[in-house]
Amino acid sequence: MAINLDVAPMLAKAVPSVPEPDSVEGGLVYEPKWDGFRGIVAFDGEHVEIGSRGAKPLTRYFPELVEAFARLLPEPCVLDGEIVISAGAIGGQRLDWEQLSQRIHPAASRVELLARETPAMFVAFDLLEVGGRSLIEQPFSERRAALERLVGGIGHPIHLTRITSDVDLARRWFEEFEGAGLDGVVAKPLAAPYAPGKRVMLKAKHHRTADVVVVGYRVHTSGRGVGSLLLGLHDDSGELRNVGGASAFSDARRLELIDELEPYVIRDPNGEAIRGETDRSRFSSSRDVSFVRLRPELVAEVRYDQLEGARFRHTAQFARWRPDREPRSCTFDQLDRPLAYDLGDVLA
């Protein structure tokens, strides 16, 4: 069976906080928000295919999961869930995005090696089809019950996500589970059918602010204006470290930023702007990673959700300039790091 990659996963709309259960007709239930690769898994009783949110086939990158699905799933089905990798010793495990991202590699030998060294897990949170019968039109309450019957007792590496109707518990998850690498809570309408590509679910994610040094900018792909700002923070030794970028500017704002940043552009003796390059990754191998260097004198306040190592996990959002802050005061000490929480307790 070849999975129909045109079946887009159901999506979630961002909300500022975990919503009340009666804020949606029919009520809400809550799940942890996993931070991995979204995966639609199709099993025909013999063969397995894994599709992604962006219609990119993931099957070849996770051979250990393909084997596990074929061996453990009791009957043909189509599952919706998240592919994740954990790191750390038992009692202190957390999700590891860096290890997960390394799996998108062109060399099959590399993928096979990583599948043995850092095997992935699949956390199931919805069921689109079982035994040849479509469940898409069924309310989530019925799909969840069928999902529990199908995979509830399968065991590692296929896990059933937690669920609760208790909003106070969901808000506790929101605070505690971040320590295991999760990034919020998803609220699902109990009465809603599965809606491919539509934002029916609600997601509450962590948002924080930090003051950062702007060290450069990339030109927008259109060739006009600033596409993104490159951000830095000073480490304990005083070295300015790249921590990610900020983007999502309007057309007008992109052009304004060119003028605002012009006095800080570093130029060679001929007056040409000096450019640099950020490190390439498996996701940017064919992308232009060059940027215009700026004197590290501008401080900006940005909004971010969480850290991955010493970098912002996702692209930050520009909030405002901070002319009252000295660049040297922008250090890692200001960042809010969640208390550690064991991933095993989340999966339990």
Rank of each mutant, 00 (worst) to 15 (best):
I3Q: 01
A8S: 12
P9R: 03
M10L: 12
D22R: 14
V29I: 10
D35I: 05
V48T: 05
E49Q: 13
E49I: 10
E49T: 11
G51K: 01
K56V: 15
R60F: 03
F69M: 07
R71D: 11
R71H: 11
L79F: 11
G81T: 13
A89W: 00
A89G: 15
R94Q: 14
W97V: 07
I104N: 06
A107D: 14
S109P: 03
S109D: 13
E112V: 14
A115H: 05
V123I: 15
G132I: 03
F140C: 02
R143Q: 06
A146P: 01
D166L: 10
D166W: 12
D166A: 13
D166Y: 15
R171W: 13
G181H: 08
K188Q: 02
K188A: 11
P189T: 01
A192E: 04
P193A: 08
A195G: 00
P196T: 09
R199P: 01
V200M: 09
V212I: 14
V212E: 02
V212L: 08
T221L: 10
V226S: 08
S228K: 00
L230R: 08
G232Y: 08
H234I: 10
S237K: 12
V243E: 04
G244Y: 00
A246S: 14
S250T: 15
D251Q: 14
L255A: 01
I258D: 04
D259W: 07
E260V: 05
E262H: 05
E262M: 10
P269C: 08
R275N: 07
E277Y: 08
S284K: 02
S284V: 00
V289Y: 05
F291S: 04
V292T: 14
V299Y: 13
Y304T: 00
D305R: 15
R311G: 03
R313W: 06
H314T: 08
T315E: 05
Q317A: 13
A319Y: 08
W321K: 11
W321V: 10
D324Q: 11
R328E: 14
C330A: 14
C330H: 05
